[in-house]
Amino acid sequence: MPKTKVQELIFTGMMVLVMVYAMICYNVALNCGGMANHVFLDALRELPVMAVLAFLLDFFLVGKVAKRAALKIVNPEKDNPFLLVLGISAVSVVCMCPLMSLAATVLFQHPGAQVIAVWIETTVKNFPMALCWQLFAAGPLVRLLFRLGMKQAKGRQPAADTVK
């Protein structure tokens, strides 16, 4: 998908916003006993901190690990290219979910001496949602929007052989 560093920054930013906002909404809903309209606004308070953290983790660490791990599982020359996308997505969730759950535990749940127990509980609650959301909603949506954005950007660039 992204072919340049700028494209990678844009794609990562888009994915982080969609994933992090949804996961914050999920956790707020869990904490207040179910989904309600206020959840969408309440989640916005945590979004700046969690989005920046997720972006830094994904762009500088997890993204690279996920690509390397997926390339050990999938051969892009022989296998369907979509398997590589699925592999990267799955490994990203496997790495990001515990890291982001730890951050949420420490920053927002005030676990006291129970930090390890609360972190594990938060990770276990978040993992199924994060994996399903990534594979079935956020991933397809962000890839579609990214492709459309890149097509539009390409259409606005003057052709290299055009004389002015």
Rank of each mutant, 00 (worst) to 15 (best):
S101L: 00
S101P: 07
S101T: 05
L102N: 01
A103E: 04
A103W: 10
A103Y: 05
A104I: 03
A104Q: 01
A104S: 09
V106P: 02
L107Y: 14
F108D: 09
F108Y: 10
F108A: 11
H110G: 10
H110T: 14
P111L: 15
P111W: 07
P111C: 13
G112I: 11
G112Q: 08
A113C: 07
A113D: 14
A113M: 06
Q114E: 15
Q114K: 14
Q114Y: 00
V115D: 07
I116F: 08
I116R: 04
A117W: 10
A117F: 09
V118C: 08
W119D: 00
W119N: 01
I120H: 05
I120Q: 02
I120E: 15
I120F: 03
I120K: 01
I120M: 06
E121F: 14
T122Q: 07
T123V: 15
T123M: 13
T123H: 14
V124C: 02
V124G: 04
V124Y: 05
K125G: 06
K125H: 14
N126Q: 10
N126R: 00
F127I: 12
F127P: 02
P128V: 12
P128H: 12
A130P: 01
A130F: 02
A130V: 08
L131G: 00
L131P: 02
L131F: 11
C132Q: 09
W133H: 07
W133E: 07
W133A: 15
L135V: 12
F136G: 15
A138V: 05
A138I: 03
G139C: 06
G139Q: 05
P140H: 04
P140R: 03
L141S: 08
V142M: 08
V142L: 12
V142Q: 01
V142G: 06
R143I: 03
L144K: 04
L144M: 08
L145Y: 11
L145E: 03
F146M: 07
F146G: 02
R147H: 12
L148K: 06
G149M: 11
M150I: 09
K151D: 11
K151M: 13
Q152Y: 04
Q152R: 08
Q152S: 07
Q152M: 12
Q152E: 04
A153Q: 10
A153F: 13
A153E: 06
A153P: 04
A153D: 09
